[in-house]
């Protein structure tokens, strides 16, 4: 019902006629999420493919991931305005991937702090030029160095942000999905915003460490959460059941690659043979699976 009201609110508001307002749902009191469909980032969707949103406290708002394009960032900012008159005080980037950070520029204003893992700025520096050089051709969006805003608040291990009677606990994770993953826990609603540390339906994408990721999932699996928000896929209200498919995929990959390494198989062989039985279980399997095998193989071959 609340969801319907929020949605209606957007449709009826005069602003929405003029400029697009991102559709968000209030999934827990004060927690708003835009759930995205699963697509390969392209010129049609402009890379607007991730779950993004915000959390509203008594004094201000924390945006969690700003979107895949400057336009989506603007639409998210309008969504915040529709819901509350409170100002945005934090923009939290959960990691470096473009679908989570290209909306940052929409929120740049005095009093807004950008928050990220302590390795996020470095990842932006090393990957930024490549991402920017591809954005026009692959995503049909216009971005430059101003659209990549490094964090001015860096999380080394953990940090607590207060939005006014609402504490967010940020955790900087060891290398997993990327080497700069940050999660956000909202105490008030027992909600864990895992972002791309968790995938549902959309095949998990490894861009950090398969071993590190499995370790983090095993650790998180032991905790209880009322709600977990993945970076791609549906909301999880049955934790830890909702994480099992993701974990099983990584375990299968690791197990099969280790066997091939023992047999002296090459990377090229592994890419063509590992994990193919998981094909039916995931969306975008063809787009990401071989990359996952490549990156996992290059890591696991250094195990002793």
């Amino acid at each position: 019902m609340r969801l319907l009201l929020v949605w209606l609110g957007f449709c009826l508001s005069p602003v929405s006629w003029a400029l697009p307002v991102l559709q968000v749902a209030e999934v827990a009191p004060g927690v708003f999420v835009h759930i995205s469909a699963h697509h390969w980032p392209d010129r049609e969707n402009h890379g607007e493919i991730a779950n993004i949103g915000f959390i509203v406290g008594d004094s201000c708002v924390a945006v969690i991931d700003s979107g895949g394009s400057p336009q989506q960032g603007m639409a998210l900012r309008r969504a915040v305005k529709k819901v509350t008159a409170k100002p945005v005080c934090y923009v939290i980037n959960t990691h470096v991937h473009p679908d989570h950070i290209y909306g940052n520029s929409a929120f740049k204003a005095p009093g807004v702090r950008f928050v990220g893992h302590h390795k996020l700025a470095r990842a932006m520096a090393t990957r930024g030029p490549h991402y920017l050089s591809k954005a026009d051709e692959l995503l049909d969006i216009r971005v430059g160095p101003d659209n990549i805003i490094p964090p001015d608040l860096q999380v080394k291990e953990s940090m607590t942000l207060n939005l006014g009677n609402r504490e967010l606990q940020l955790t900087a994770h060891p290398s997993a999905h990327t080497d700069n993953d940050l999660s956000v826990y909202d105490k008030n609603t027992d909600t864990l915003w895992l972002a791309d540390l968790l995938f549902l339906e959309h095949i998990p994408v490894i861009d950090g460490s398969i071993r590190g990721w499995l370790k983090e999932l095993e650790r998180l699996e032991k905790n209880q959460y009322k709600l977990v928000i993945p970076g791609h896929g549906r909301l999880v209200r049955d934790w830890p059941a909702g994480l099992q498919a993701h974990k099983a995929y990584l375990e299968q990959l690791a197990a099969e690659i280790r066997i091939m390494l023992k047999q002296g198989k090459t990377l090229e062989y592994a890419v063509d043979h590992v994990g193919l039985s998981a094909r039916q279980l995931w969306r975008l399997f063809e787009e990401f699976h071989r990359k996952n095998v490549t990156i996992a193989f290059a890591e696991l071959e250094w195990e002793d």
Binding site: P41, H130, L138, S175, D179, G212, I295, E299
Partner: peptide
């Protein structure tokens, strides 16, 4: 090129840095 979220840098540079200089030979055939 594959595009998307990848970049031609390397996923976990700290891990590679920690092992820097480590060498392995394999004669798999």
């Amino acid at each position: 090129a594959s595009g998307g979220c990848s970049a031609p840098v390397g996923a976990d540079l700290d891990e590679a840095m920690k092992r820097l200089g480590k060498v392995k030979f394999r004669l798999d055939e």
